[in-house]
Nucleic acid binder design. Structure first.
Length: 279
DNA sequence: CATCAACCCTGAGAGC
DNA sequence: TGCTCTCAGGGTTGAT
């Protein structure tokens, strides 16, 4: 399930080439096909292909868990949700044979020069937006975890203003952009904070520790090209560094206590009862 | 404002 | 082997 490091890895590959594809920046879109209309959030699925045709991709980046592509006139945003991925393929140089859409491909974008971008999404939760201003969609997001504007004291202030369980709060994209189930569990363990701790109970020192832990696990995740879980996202190796995530019943790498699994805000949550006591 | 449940979906894994 | 059942998981929506 793509979180910030996975989305960052995918955005980089689209921007700079890598994996199978070559860079998409600078390419002009010829046409598009929508195979699953609900994958298009805006404009209407019918209007999408007409409106995107002819536009050139000028920039590719990331904001929270969104992939952000700046086109000639519009912005193309992609949220991969649970099972989404973007795949670049090229026509056979010799025969000119074109790539075929696969079973789980929901949207296909064709570029001049025989390059294709497929939005594959087994579970159909992912969405695309084609809008004049990216901010229409992105403005509701909380700060980027790596934003220089976000320091320990500001983070502490934000936590103080709310009275929520820390884990669901960290996963709330309006509060902080980019965290998902994996990196939240990992960051809370690294910071030694129980997932049910109320946000306004955290002291300044704990807030600073938490922000540092969030940045550390995200940076390590990016360094390892994300985590490969289940059959979805592939190519990363951060799953080999999980401290607690999906390690229920195993020993805590720090203290040796048995890692527990509880439900927090409808999400499975892994933590060490010794390293992360609830006070 | 905080919490909770349902919903959107599919494939994997369990149980039979 | 093959069927049915349950469940995970990000985000949105509506109820409490």
């Amino acid at each position: 399930m793509p979180e910030l490091p996975e989305v960052e890895t995918i955005a980089r590959a689209l921007r700079e080439g890598g994996r199978s594809g070559r860079p998409l920046t600078g390419l002009r879109i010829q046409q598009a096909h929508v195979y699953w209309p609900r994958s298009i959030q805006a404009p209407s699925p019918d209007a999408f292909p007409t409106r995107i045709a002819g536009q050139v991709i000028n920039e590719i980046g990331r904001r929270g868990k969104f992939i952000v592509m700046q086109l000639s006139r519009d912005a193309l945003l992609v949220h991969l949700r649970m099972s989404g991925d973007l795949r670049v393929e090229e026509a056979e140089p010799r025969t000119g044979k074109l790539p075929l859409a696969r079973q789980h491909d929901r949207v296909e974008i064709c570029f001049e020069g025989g390059v294709f971008l497929f939005f594959e999404d087994t579970r159909k939760f992912g969405r695309m937006w084609l809008v004049p201003q990216a901010d229409e969609v992105l403005e509701v997001l909380g700060p980027e975890p790596f934003s220089p504007d976000l320091d320990a004291s500001k983070f502490f202030e934000h936590l103080q203003k709310r009275k929520r369980q820390i884990k669901p709060l960290l996963m709330d994209q309006h509060f902080l952009a980019g965290m998902g189930n994996i990196y939240t569990d990992e960051a809370l363990h690294l910071a030694g904070i129980h997932p049910l701790t109320l946000s306004n109970q955290l002291e300044l020192s704990a807030a600073g520790r938490l922000l540092g832990a969030i940045r550390e696990v995200l940076a390590e995740g990016i360094r390892q090209n994300g985590a490969s879980i289940d059959w979805v996202y592939r190519g990363g190796s951060f799953q080999n560094n999980f401290r607690v995530y999906q390690r229920t019943g195993e020993k805590c790498p720090v203290c040796g206590q048995t890692i527990e699994r509880i439900l927090v805000g409808q999400r499975s949550t892994h933590f060490c009862p010794f390293c992360q006591p609830l006070r």
